[in-house]
């Protein structure tokens, strides 16, 4: 099962631990996490369902390719990391 983890910054807002979830795509894996932590949804996604501009997602050390639908395929041993982008000032 893919492992999904979150940056300390995100975890300061939503109490979500690293978890192993089922899912064949990044979207499916995240949705599995969101079932456990529904509050997390509004931190990651706009109200229209798109990934927030300043949320970055990494799949095995590379940025996810498909930010629109998060269709990047995942394997059971994959690692997904979600963090805030480097923005602001």
């Amino acid at each position: 099962m893919p492992t999904v983890s979150f940056s300390p910054n995100i975890r300061s807002h939503v109490d979500v631990e690293t978890c192993d979830v089922s899912g064949g795509t990044v979207r499916e894996a995240l949705e599995a996490v969101l079932l456990l932590h529904p509050k997390l949804r509004s931190y990651l996604f706009d109200d229209d369902g798109s990934v927030r501009k300043h949320i970055a997602m990494i799949l095995n050390s590379e940025p996810v390719e498909d930010r629109e639908t998060l269709s990047d395929a995942t394997q059971p041993e994959d690692e997904i990391f979600v963090m805030q982008a480097l923005s602001g000032g």
Binding site: P8, I58, F81
Partner: peptide, 8 residues
């Protein structure tokens, strides 16, 4: 410091 080593 907020990104795991294995994630770049």
């Amino acid at each position: 410091d907020f990104i795991p080593e294995e994630q770049g």
